[in-house]
Amino acid sequence: SEYETMLTEIMSMGYERERVVAALRASYNNPHRAVEYLLTGIPG
């Protein structure tokens, strides 16, 4: 799925699956924002 592709691409940058899933959830599946959250911390 498109979601799995995003997940895999972000994980390939060296992040753990659960952190990527949390970041995508926080960003409403916006991959650019999710990466930003992984770099700066997930808000909330």
Rank of each mutant, 00 (worst) to 15 (best):
L24N: 00
T8M: 15
E9D: 10
R19K: 13
N29V: 04
R19W: 09
L24Q: 00
R17W: 08
T40S: 13
T5A: 14
E4I: 11
A26L: 11
Y3V: 05
Y37I: 12
G14Y: 03
I10E: 00
S27D: 01
A22I: 09
P43E: 09
E16Q: 07
S27Y: 05
N29L: 08
E4R: 07
A22Y: 05
Y15H: 06
A34Y: 02
L39W: 05
G14E: 02
A23E: 01
R19S: 13
P43I: 11
S12M: 12
I10H: 01
A22W: 07
E4V: 09
G41S: 11
N29S: 05
E16D: 13
S12G: 11
E36F: 13
M13S: 03
G14I: 03
G41W: 12
V20R: 00
P31W: 11
N30T: 05
L39G: 06
I42E: 11
S1T: 14
T40N: 15
M13C: 05
L24P: 00
S27R: 01
S12N: 14
N29Y: 11
I10R: 00
R19C: 10
A34T: 04
R19F: 10
M6P: 01
L24W: 02
A22N: 07
Y37F: 12
V35M: 13
G44R: 08
L38Y: 02
E2T: 11
L7V: 15
T5K: 15
L39H: 08
I10T: 01
M6N: 06
Y28K: 15
S27A: 15
Y28A: 15
Y28F: 14
T8D: 11
G41Y: 12
L24D: 00
Y37R: 04
E4H: 09
Y3A: 04
E16F: 04
L39P: 00
V35N: 02
E36Q: 13
R17K: 10
N29F: 11
V21T: 06
L24T: 00
V20F: 03
T5V: 12
E36N: 06
L7Q: 01
Y15E: 02
E16W: 05
P43F: 10
Y15M: 03
E4Q: 10
A26K: 06
R19D: 15
R17L: 10
S27G: 07
G14T: 01
S27I: 03
T5E: 12
G41C: 08
R19T: 12
S1D: 13
E18N: 09
T8Q: 15
T5G: 09
Y3H: 05
I10K: 01
T40H: 15
S12C: 06
M11E: 05
E4A: 08
R19I: 13
L24R: 00
P43M: 11
H32I: 15
R19P: 07
P43Y: 09
A23H: 01
G44M: 12
N29E: 05
V21C: 04
H32C: 09
G14C: 03
L24M: 08
T5I: 14
E2P: 10
M11Y: 03
A22D: 10
T40M: 14
L24H: 00
P31R: 09
R33P: 02
E36R: 07
M13T: 03
V20K: 00
R17S: 04
R19H: 13
S1G: 11
P31Y: 15
N30Y: 03
E18P: 07
T8Y: 13
A22S: 07
E18M: 06
N30S: 06
H32P: 06
T40Y: 15
T8P: 02
G14H: 02
E9S: 12
M11P: 00
L24A: 00
V21R: 05
S1Y: 12
G14N: 02
R25L: 14
T5N: 13
S12D: 09
I42G: 10
G14D: 02
V35W: 06
V21Y: 04
I42Q: 09
M11K: 01
M11L: 06
E36S: 06
E9Q: 14
T8G: 09
P31C: 08
P43H: 09
P43L: 12
N30L: 04
L39A: 10
R33S: 07
T8N: 14
S27K: 02
S27M: 06
A34I: 03
R25E: 14
A22M: 08
I10P: 00
V21I: 14
V21G: 03
E4L: 11
G44H: 13
T8V: 12
R33Q: 13
L39D: 07
N30M: 05
R19G: 05
T40A: 14
E2Y: 12
P31T: 05
A34D: 01
M13P: 01
G14V: 03
L7I: 15
Y28W: 10
E36Y: 14
T5C: 09
E4S: 08
R17V: 06
I10A: 02
S27H: 06
V20N: 00
T5H: 12
N30R: 04
E2M: 11
I42S: 09
R33F: 08
I42R: 08
T8I: 14
V35Y: 08
Y37K: 04
V20G: 01
S1K: 13
S12L: 12
M11A: 04
T40L: 12
E2G: 10
T8F: 14
H32A: 14
L24Y: 01
A23K: 01
R19Y: 10
Y3R: 04
I42F: 14
I10W: 04
Y37L: 14
E36W: 13
G41K: 08
I10F: 07
G44N: 13
R25A: 15
I10G: 01
M11S: 04
L38W: 02
S27P: 00
E9P: 01
L38K: 00
T40D: 09
E18A: 10
R17I: 06
M13A: 05
V20W: 03
G14M: 04
L38I: 05
E16K: 06
V20Q: 00
R19L: 15
P43R: 07
M6G: 02
M13Q: 07
P43N: 09
A26W: 08
L24G: 00
E16N: 08
I42L: 13
A34W: 03
S27N: 07
Y15A: 01
Y15N: 02
N29K: 04
E2C: 07
N29P: 04
V35C: 07
R33E: 08
A26H: 08
M13K: 06
E4C: 07
R25H: 11
E2V: 11
A26F: 08
A23G: 01
M6T: 06
Y3Q: 04
A34H: 01
R17F: 10
V21L: 09
E9A: 14
H32Y: 12
T5F: 11
A22V: 08
A22G: 05
S1E: 12
M11V: 08
T40I: 11
N29A: 05
G44C: 07
N30Q: 08
R25W: 08
Y28P: 04
A23W: 03
E16R: 05
A23D: 01
E2H: 12
R33K: 15
G41L: 09
E36D: 08
S27T: 10
N29Q: 06
E18L: 06
E16V: 07
M11N: 01
S12V: 06
H32N: 10
L24I: 04
I10D: 00
P43A: 09
V35T: 05
L7E: 01
E16P: 14
A26P: 01
E9N: 12
N29D: 08
E9I: 13
Y28C: 15
A26Q: 08
A26G: 04
A22L: 09
G41I: 10
M13Y: 07
L7H: 01
T8S: 14
A26I: 09
R17Q: 07
A23C: 04
E9F: 14
G14F: 04
I42V: 10
H32Q: 15
H32E: 15
G41T: 11
M13R: 05
P43V: 10
T8L: 15
S12Y: 06
R19V: 14
G41V: 10
V21A: 09
E4P: 03
V35H: 05
L38P: 00
Y3F: 10
E4N: 09
P31E: 05
A22F: 05
E16A: 09
Y15W: 12
E16G: 07
M6D: 03
T40W: 13
V20E: 00
L38G: 01
M6Q: 04
E16Y: 04
N30E: 09
R25I: 12
V20D: 01
G41P: 06
E2L: 12
R25M: 12
V20C: 04
I10M: 07
T40Q: 13
R25T: 09
A26Y: 08
R25F: 09
L7K: 02
V20I: 05
E9Y: 14
N29H: 07
N29M: 11
R25S: 10
L38N: 00
S1A: 12
Y15C: 01
G44K: 10
G44W: 12
V35S: 03
R17H: 06
Y15K: 01
L39Y: 05
N30D: 15
A23T: 02
T8E: 14
R33G: 06
V20H: 01
N30G: 01
T40V: 10
R25N: 11
S1V: 13
S12F: 06
E9W: 15
R25P: 00
G44A: 13
Y28E: 15
M6W: 11
T40R: 10
A22P: 01
Y28N: 15
Y28V: 08
P31A: 09
G44I: 13
